[in-house]
């Protein structure tokens, strides 16, 4: 009888109001089975800065709630994948814990105004034709001047929506529609470490040299992924990022190098 009462079904909470009267957007969560020891928690199917903030809060809360039962966790744009130790716990217990913390975190996240959540990290960028070989074509296609493109790229406070593709690769959004640009028809075999790039309405800093098809607009001297540093990455999912233009000399003073550009065109 006891077991029957604990039948696992995703329940949805409806939008409610917290004490300051602001509506809590999209409080409903859905939990689906991902694999034999993984559940995926869906918050939204839209890219949204408040959702990102809530996912950040919720990720920490799930980590705390599951403790040693948690094997790993992947926050992304609208979801969190929760990988648990199926020898120590099961999907009933894990989804119950997620529901409990998701309810609490939605109130917590909404209590913070959108501009005061997550860390705010400023990343310096040396924008130039030398360090951003796609600036020219991007500006031409957008019908803007190169300076305008650089200005627009700096104007937005971005959100770290996800980290993946490669270690330390943070997807930042959303880029102003005016400078959004599709991926290159032919990806480059080598994009240098630190390259600041745009693809559609996302922007990123390449954490290491790798192949890549994004439009390169500049170089950032801040290491995005350093195994020996603490923290390993200056940003985490849910954090906020702004870019600030710097000159060539400052770029070099901050540890940047142009040697890696090679025959980049």
């Amino acid at each position: 009888m006891g077991i029957m009462q604990r039948v696992w079904r995703p329940y949805k909470k409806f939008a409610s109001y917290c004490n300051d009267g602001r509506p809590v957007i999209n409080q409903a969560i859905t939990i689906s089975v991902a694999g034999e020891n993984a559940l995926i928690v869906y918050f939204s199917d839209k890219v949204d800065t408040q959702v990102a903030a809530r996912i950040k809060t919720c990720s920490s809360a799930i980590r705390l709630a599951l403790g040693l039962h948690l094997i790993d966790l992947i926050p992304s744009y609208g979801s969190i994948l929760v990988i648990y130790d199926s020898l120590l716990t099961d999907h009933f217990a894990v989804s119950k814990a997620i529901h409990t913390v998701a309810g609490a975190s939605s109130i917590q996240a909404s209590a913070l105004s959108a501009s005061h959540d997550g860390k705010l990290i400023t990343l310096p960028v040396y924008y130039s034709l030398e360090s951003g070989p796609d600036l020219k074509s991007l500006a031409e296609n957008a019908g803007l001047s190169i300076d305008q493109v650089i200005e627009i790229h700096q104007a937005i406070e971005y959100r770290v929506y996800a980290i993946g593709f490669a270690p330390g690769f943070a997807y930042l959004g959303e880029v102003d529609e005016r400078i959004a640009a599709p991926r290159l028809a032919t990806p480059r075999l080598k994009v240098p470490r630190g390259a600041v790039a745009i693809a559609d309405r996302q922007t990123a800093v390449y954490p290491a040299e790798s192949p890549g098809g994004w439009n390169l607009v500049g170089l950032c001297p801040t290491p995005m992924f350093d195994a020996k540093a603490d923290p390993i990455m200056p940003v985490s999912t849910g954090d906020r990022v702004v870019f600030k233009a710097i000159g060539k000399q400052e770029f070099i003073d901050l540890g940047g190098t142009l040697d890696t550009l090679g025959d980049l065109k």
């Binding site: 991902a34 694999g35 034999e36 020891n37 993984a38 995926i40 199917d45 890219v47 966790l73 992947i74 926050p75 992304s76 744009y77 609208g78 979801s79 969190i80 994948l81 990988i83 996800a162 993946g164 997807y171």
Partner: peptide, 11 residues
């Protein structure tokens, strides 16, 4: 396609 999300072992 979907919004990029976490992939588990064996997906």
């Amino acid at each position: 396609g979907i919004l990029s999300e976490g992939i588990c072992q064996g997906a």
